[in-house]
Amino acid sequence: KWEEIAERLREEFNINPEEAREAVEKAGGNEEEARRIVKK
């Protein structure tokens, strides 16, 4: 599940997989929260 979210974030925000994974981890697997983290 987290991998899927990280993949979507990576494609959408054009970030590297590591950044995407970190955002999802910080968000506890919550996609909306992960998006907010990435946008900062």
Rank of each mutant, 00 (worst) to 15 (best):
E22P: 01
N30G: 04
R8G: 05
K26W: 05
A27K: 01
E4I: 09
N16D: 12
K26D: 03
R8H: 06
E25K: 12
K40G: 14
E12P: 00
I15P: 07
F13H: 10
E11D: 15
E4D: 14
L9M: 05
R35P: 02
K26F: 06
R21F: 13
L9C: 02
E19W: 09
W2G: 05
V24I: 14
A20E: 01
A20P: 00
A23P: 00
E19Q: 12
A20H: 00
G29I: 02
E4W: 06
K39N: 13
E19A: 14
I5K: 03
E7K: 14
E31A: 10
R10V: 14
N16E: 15
E3Y: 09
R35T: 05
R21M: 15
R36N: 14
I15W: 03
R8Y: 01
R8A: 08
A27Q: 02
V38A: 12
E32L: 09
R35A: 05
E32K: 09
I5T: 05
A27I: 01
E7N: 15
I37N: 08
I5P: 01
A6Q: 07
G28F: 13
E3H: 15
A27V: 04
R36H: 10
G29K: 03
K1S: 12
E4M: 07
N16S: 15
E3A: 12
I15E: 07
K26H: 10
G28I: 10
A6P: 01
K1D: 14
K26I: 09
K39L: 08
V24W: 04
I5L: 14
W2H: 06
G28R: 13
E12V: 02
A20D: 01
E33L: 10
E32D: 11
R10P: 02
V24D: 01
A34N: 02
R10Q: 11
E4H: 07
G28T: 06
K40F: 04
I37W: 00
W2L: 07
E33M: 10
A27D: 01
K1H: 11
W2R: 06
L9R: 00
E19L: 13
K1W: 14
A23Q: 02
I15V: 12
K1F: 13
V24K: 00
E4V: 06
E4S: 11
F13W: 03
R8N: 05
E12G: 02
